[in-house]
């Protein structure tokens, strides 16, 4: 009896977990008057943390605000849910949130099997190695015979093993499950190096007694493109998300900042005039206000400014911009032009 009921319930629930497709996401957002975004829960240093006055602040929160600015002309019309890794995908599928701005790694199966779209890659992360400066190591390739602290059973551990094997080097792993304890083990000198995603390493480094004496090596052991995710078959909303993000990057490329955006609007450069909606066309094509890009930059700032504010050298995290620099400055940040 109990087994039958459970089986029935299971069947019902399976039948019901299909993305809700009634009505477009954009209409629902407009009717509601706010955009519902997911950030990583309980919180993620630099990307989304509860700030003073009960507001979420962080890099990912501002991505959400940028999308809201495009839709409503007001970056404050957002609702943030902090979702754990277990609930983030069902939440997007069930319509609990409109968009994931929570550092979800963009991989093939999530795009295809989970039926998500990734309109933008907002941050290019990758597995890095943290070492004390006094070791005098410039590259991961000099770490032959090192003791490395790593969390067990993760892709991180796998990538570490592969990296050392590929470079014909030996290492002794120190595996500890808890991230805090792992950091402590590194701080106590139980291992020469600590490996994790670079953004995580930066957070771990900032908890050390003297963060300036440790360095994240330039090597990246894995590709972790962190993307913004939306549901399938909602092209209108997908475009809005994509071009809200692209506006952030293109503004940096064009030299448009929060401070100079009003001045730039007066410039004679046709590209900038089109971008900021002085010459109409782009906003209408997207189905939003002509000055959407102006609004985003005015209310939030450009990509570079966000990076500096939440993750850059002046923050406790001090994550080097690295591959997230513009392609014009030696990075890999390359978005399609707004034209």
């Amino acid at each position: 009896m109990k087994g039958f009921t459970a089986a029935l319930l299971g069947a019902v629930s399976l039948a019901c977990i299909t993305p809700t497709e009634a009505g477009s996401t954009l209409d629902a957002i407009k009717a509601r008057g706010s955009l519902k975004c997911a950030v990583q829960g309980p919180s993620n240093p630099g990307f989304g943390v509860p700030g003073s006055g009960g507001k979420w602040v962080g890099f990912n929160v501002d991505l959400c605000r940028a999308i809201a600015a495009t839709i409503f002309g007001d970056a404050e019309k957002i609702q943030i849910s902090a979702l754990t890794t277990q609930t983030r995908f069902p939440a997007l599928q069930s319509g609990e949130v409109d968009v994931l701005t929570n550092n979800t790694t963009y991989v093939m199966t999530r795009d295809t099997q989970l039926k998500f779209n990734f309109p933008a890659i907002s941050f290019m992360d990758g597995q890095g190695i943290l070492v004390p400066k006094k070791l005098n190591v410039k590259s991961g390739k000099e770490l032959n015979g090192a003791t490395v602290c790593v969390q067990p059973g993760t892709t991180t551990e796998l990538a570490l093993t592969d990296y050392f094997r590929k470079n014909n080097m030996k290492f002794t792993p120190v595996v500890i499950q808890s991230r805090d304890e792992l950091t402590r083990a590194y701080a106590d000198g139980r291992c020469d190096a600590l490996t994790s995603d670079a953004t995580t390493l930066a957070a771990q480094r900032s908890t050390l007694a003297n963060p300036a004496e440790h360095v994240i090596l330039p090597d990246r052991l894995s590709k972790e493109p962190l993307g913004i995710a939306v549901r399938h078959s909602d092209e209108e909303f997908r475009d809005i998300v994509a071009w809200s993000f692209n506006a952030l990057v293109n503004a940096e490329e064009l030299g448009v900042t929060q401070a100079n955006v009003d001045e730039m609007a007066k410039s004679g450069d046709p590209e900038i005039r089109r971008f900021l909606g002085v010459e109409p066309g782009l906003g209408a094509a997207l189905g939003v206000d002509e000055k959407y890009a102006y609004t985003i930059i005015k209310q939030i700032g450009n990509y570079g400014e966000l990076y500096e504010k939440y993750l850059g050298e002046k923050t406790p995290l001090a994550i080097p911009r690295g591959v997230n620099r513009l392609y014009t400055q030696g990075g890999a940040l390359y978005t399609p032009p707004s034209r």
Binding site: P42, S43, P45, D180, S206, P316
Partner: peptide, 11 residues
């Protein structure tokens, strides 16, 4: 838990 990852107060 959420305040544990405030960049100013990590750890």
């Amino acid at each position: 838990k959420a305040s544990l990852s405030d960049p100013a107060w990590l750890g």
